[in-house]
Design a protein around this nucleic acid. Structure first.
Lengths: 244, 244
DNA sequence: TTTGCAATGTGTAATATTTACGCATTAAAT
DNA sequence: ATTTAATGCGTAAATATTACACATTGCAAA
């Protein structure tokens, strides 16, 4: 692969949904002094990396996701570039970058991507580093300006959820209407009336009912549905709107 | 000022409204062979520039606007980073960059900003270069990937117009409801019923009627209004929506 | 095997919002 | 004085949203 560009990186806000909470995937950032064994850094960050000279920024984000999940076709969208001069200012952050490479002591503009993955069906690995899902309301201390990046990504996810059917990306292929409702309630921070929500979803021709029911639940099993992007693209004119 | 970063730039899609059409501001790109006087390049581009090492990307965009208009507080918003490896590929574009500086032969990631200005009250100048307003439906040939950038900027303007009251930035401080309507119709590409549009606008507490009427028109002069961002921020909860 | 539990699944009336549309008013130009 | 080309106002019809109650299903516990 070609050379790394030292002052441009991408960072991914990877969202997952466990049928209850919206989670973000973070990677542990640990550094200890080689002699004294003193812990110099111990916190978490978004998953990101510098881009290569012969690599689109989109491709860099895809590369990171692929390395992490082994999967190729993950929902990915750029949401904002972070270009403040002093976005990396904390000595910890500078130390970490220096430890990675002397070349990273320059100024870095990073491009934020958010990604939606169906966390129930994915196994994760990132070399020797520890990656973990964190619910949004219980985040650890984050390095760099990743709190800001994460929140901007979340904001964009919320906005986009209201106008396009991207929520399905967070669910398995087959899902129930209640699962979809919980997802929307969790992300948008609202409550919907169960019956009205169902009515709305049933109107969407691209949410297709299956002749199949939920299994292994201890109550009346719900009908399963699939989302069809193909049908959605054909019937796009209907304004999609999950707002209150 | 500090050194230029050769592989990061900003480009501004500057919109203006002349009470009839939505226009974009472009700068002429002309280059002729010094000996033969042959025209090597003659087209137009968005207004952009590389960023400096000690400059936020936002500040770089502001710097460009200031140089162009002399004004400080212009509506400005980042909309997308363009990070394809081969976004600059045309020999003309490479020639132009080389002519600007040998250092610009590297790969460049550019960050797109869109800006809204009240074109009726601004005088423009950009050193020795020719700048001009073009209506969106009659654009000249654009250099680089600026057609793509322009269209993405426009898309973002449209999206944002539907959810936030940014259209006012394109009008003079005092405006009539019909002017506002024409603006929205032009940008969103829709027609609104005059009476219903008026009703909707009058509900917005942040569109404040003045005891003042239009002058110099050859029909019944309309009442003038001002937009108050302050009132808007206070009453934000009401969902703003100009959709059909 | 019966009963309780915890969900799913359906319908309808009340309310709010959006759309469609008609006519009087005003200032300038003829 | 009359015409012109807009502004300004109100109301009815259509549509969309919200609120709400009860029957159904499959499993688990009694």
């Amino acid at each position: 692969m070609s050379k790394i560009i030292p002052n441009i990186s991408v960072d991914c806000v990877i969202f997952g949904f466990d049928f209850n909470k919206l989670n973000v995937l973070l990677v542990e950032r640990k550094l200890e002094d080689e002699k004294s064994k003193e812990t110099l850094i111990d916190d978490w960050t978004l998953i990101g990396y510098h881009i290569y000279e012969e690599e689109d920024t989109d491709s860099a984000a895809k590369r990171i996701l692929k390395k992490l999940t082994g999967l190729d076709h993950i929902y990915l969208e750029q949401f904002e570039a972070f270009g403040e001069v002093y976005r990396i200012n904390d000595p910890k952050d500078k130390l970490w970058l220096k430890y990675q490479s002397e070349r990273f002591s320059e100024r870095i503009v990073t491009i934020g991507y958010f990604s939606l993955i169906n966390s129930t069906s994915v196994s994760l690995s990132l070399h020797e580093r520890n990656v973990k899902w964190f619910p949004l309301n219980d985040l650890p201390e984050l390095g760099f300006d990743h709190n800001k990046i994460l929140n901007k990504g979340l904001e964009r996810l919320r906005d986009k959820m209201r106008s396009e059917p991207i929520g399905f990306e967070l669910l398995p292929g087959k899902f129930t209407i209640s699962q979809l409702q919980r997802l929307y309630e969790e992300i948008l921070g609202t409550k919907f009336d169960r019956r009205n929500f169902r009515k709305k979803v049933l109107q969407m021709k691209y949410v297709i009912p299956l002749d199949e029911k939920q299994k292994g639940v201890k109550h009346k099993p719900a009908q399963l549905f699939i989302f069809s992007r193909e049908v959605y693209e054909k019937t796009k004119t209907e304004r999609f709107d999950f707002s209150i």
